[in-house]
């Protein structure tokens, strides 16, 4: 191993010696070479993990989810990379990533100057997933944000503004003390292209309207 095992400060596990987790380092400005080849200008391999989670054949309502990432100066972050993880329309996760399937729970996207500094996913609106006590959570998409200047990726959730009733009783939204800050996670529905509904969420890394980030 690279390191000597240490007695962790964390709860012990049957007296077991624990290793420390490998520490994070920023994904940097060239993250696209490794995880978003098209954005870097590198030829694609046979199969790439990208922003289409669902095809029109998938169960549920096909939607587009878009947004920007904004820094503490109010400037658009043009080199952010995002990952999405969500349930299908029935509230079930589909962990086995397979591009032949109409729906996958995982996807990736990036903001680029060429795309107006917006990220986007094509997916279906997720169903409700049970929370820790079996109490259903409102439909949501987990998002992870990576970029130059972000040392450990930020974790947040995207909710939907037309799910008001479900949002009102979602135990995770409810655990955010400030009702005003809960609003930072709610994407707004707008007219999309070709009749596909579009939901928009701008992620604010810092300052006024700062997005709620989670640790778990």
């Amino acid at each position: 191993m690279n390191q000597q095992p240490i007695r962790s400060q964390q709860p012990t596990h049957g007296g077991c010696v624990l290793y420390r987790e490998t520490p994070s380092q920023t994904a940097g400005p060239y993250v696209h070479i490794g995880l978003a080849l098209d954005v870097a200008g590198i030829p694609l391999r046979d199969e790439e993990i990208w922003s289409r989670l669902a095809t029109p054949e998938a169960d549920g309502e096909l939607i587009e989810v878009v947004g920007t990432v904004i820094d503490g100066n109010g400037d658009l972050v043009r080199d952010a990379f995002l990952e999405a993880w969500q349930a299908d329309a029935h509230g079930e996760f589909q962990p086995d990533y397979d591009l032949a399937k109409p729906f996958n729970s995982f996807g990736r996207t990036a903001t680029t100057a060429e795309a107006g500094s917006e990220w986007s996913f094509t997916t279906v609106k997720p169903g409700r997933v049970p929370g820790a006590n079996g109490q259903p959570m409102a439909p949501h998409i987990n998002l992870a944000i990576f970029a130059r200047g972000i040392n450990v990726h930020l974790q947040t959730r995207l909710y939907f503004d037309d799910e008001g009733e479900a949002n009102a009783v979602c135990p995770v939204l409810g655990a955010i003390e400030s009702p005003a800050r809960r609003q930072t996670l709610i994407a707004r529905r707008e007219e999309g292209d070709n009749g596909t509904p579009r939901y928009r969420l701008d992620i604010r890394l810092q300052g006024d309207g700062e997005t709620v980030f989670f640790e778990f």
Binding site: G72, P95, A132, N142, I150, N151, E215
Partner: peptide
């Protein structure tokens, strides 16, 4: 990091859910 770091503390999930405790499996990629 100065302009890209949150000023608020992260919200700690006392009970992570299925949404946090599962993830993709790429064995079929």
């Amino acid at each position: 990091t100065v302009a890209r770091s949150p000023r608020q503390s992260p919200v700690s999930m006392q009970h992570p859910t299925r949404s946090e405790l599962t993830g993709p499996n790429f064995a079929s990629l």
